[in-house]
Design a protein around this nucleic acid. Structure first.
Lengths: 255, 255
DNA sequence: CGATCGCTTGATTCATGTCAAGCTAGGTGG
DNA sequence: CCACCTAGCTTGACATGAATCAAGCGATCG
């Protein structure tokens, strides 16, 4: 892990946390009690297996907005699961323009794109106050050999990321700007629902610029489209909190 | 595997094969002698491990243009490595429009996006006369447990696919149409070079419509841009054969 | 208290999509 | 073997969605 020297669970100062945050001040109680477990690697492990997995994981945080988890070029050391908060993975063009390739929400794994080359190809940074569960890939790999269900979970997780990326490629390639945006909102809602339950109110951890970059448009267009969707009654929003009108999101098919 | 009943290595009729095809009429001689091995799963296995891997693989083909390897909704049964030829993975919108998410070239693995759900999310079809190496995911998974390097190879391969998709998301999201196209040509060239060596002439296995769909533009735009790139001296092309002017593709950075 | 960042809204421009037409090559049937 | 037929490709004229340029506002941070 590069020398970030982010204080591990440092003085849990009293701060108002966004609704979406998952008991962010609680010290790690181990995977057994973790709220994102059903999405995370130990999802299908039994108690003793979880115990062993838990032993190779340590909690890191809080990362704050903008803190770097991986920089492009860093050697692969550990993978991280988002326990609370959110990350983005982005590249930077020659002239300093950044482009977001994906967001990582609670329960999702980051760093996997570095496995094959041993080097992180992009930047991964925190979008808001974030806690991560770190594990050495080396140790994970070894443990997976002894605990086959863990190996299978790793493969399944990679496959899930893969098909998520493919879905994004499908949607972002063909659809118009407005459809891309509604797809995005719906996707976020679905992913949050997996760990935090389906909430009325969706809190966006990222800026308009991040959304625009991810969806391949400009911040101006995002703003305008949000305004239009609101006027059409499809959504209601206020800053970064968005309420999706269920009527207008009819089990949205992604393609 | 769904009932494709594609004749296994059926009567190797004498046919003129495209330059890119990899000894397509030769019967399978096992992974040891396979030309795409260095990219394929057994890349880093020793002779006896390759032997075991080889035993769970069987060769299928020839598939011809348009033959379906996986249909959306099919249960996961086997994974396939492209030994010769090429595949595309695409979704179909409500009104029958298709969108291509990725191409699979020799040595690349297909079907992995079905692992996590057990169901293939999209269609995967042959673009040209194609041979595949099929393996049951079940058997692969079991063998990976006994042969750890194979498990690692599987994880590495998934990671490679993942970062390829991310690179595509980066490029397709931000760049203009012309840059997307040159990125695409360069990417194809690079990938072919891994198994077949760097050739002067790049043979495109897909139609303009496939390219357009993948890059998020129209066939007309692809045509026009190819014409423009040729007039600028960046490429020379004739139908589906393209020659990249090395001078104009200066170690093209993808972002 | 000022400065900066994130967001919104308006006016204008331009790249790419859409519609339309014609060309070419390869495959099929007579 | 020839003649048609179709799928794939190319080119042109025109329309438009989204980018760009520009301006202003509110909240947060130092």
């Amino acid at each position: 892990m590069r020398d970030l020297t982010i204080p591990d669970s440092q003085g849990a100062a009293a701060e108002t946390m966004a609704v979406r945050d998952f008991r962010p001040e609680a010290p790690p109680t181990g995977c057994m009690a973790c709220g994102v477990r059903q999405l995370c690697l130990p999802a299908k492990l039994n108690a003793s297996e979880i115990e062993r997995f838990s032993a190779i994981v340590h909690r890191r945080g809080p990362f704050k907005r903008g803190d770097i988890v991986y920089a492009a070029g860093d050697p692969l050391d550990g993978l991280h699961v988002v326990q609370a908060g959110a990350l983005k993975t982005h590249g930077v063009t020659g002239r300093g323009v950044e482009h977001v390739a994906r967001f990582h929400l609670p329960g999702e794994l980051a760093g996997t794109d570095a496995i094959h080359s041993g080097v992180h190809p992009w930047y991964t940074v925190a979008l808001e106050r974030t806690w991560l569960c770190a594990m050495s890939f080396e140790q994970l790999s070894n443990l997976a050999r002894e605990v086959p269900p863990l190996g299978r979970a790793l493969v399944r997780t990679l496959s899930r990321e893969l098909s998520a990326d493919e879905a994004a490629l499908m949607t972002l390639g063909k659809m118009g700007a407005s459809q891309r945006l509604t797809w995005f909102l719906n996707d976020l809602h679905t992913r949050y629902a997996k760990t935090l339950g389906s909430a009325e109110e969706l809190h966006l951890p990222m800026t308009r610029a991040d959304i625009a970059s991810y969806l391949g448009m400009t911040t101006e267009t995002v703003s305008r489209l949000l305004a239009r969707l609101q006027s059409e009654g499809v959504i209601e929003f206020n800053g970064r909190s968005v309420r999706l009108s269920r009527a207008a999101f009819p089990a949205q098919r992604c393609l």
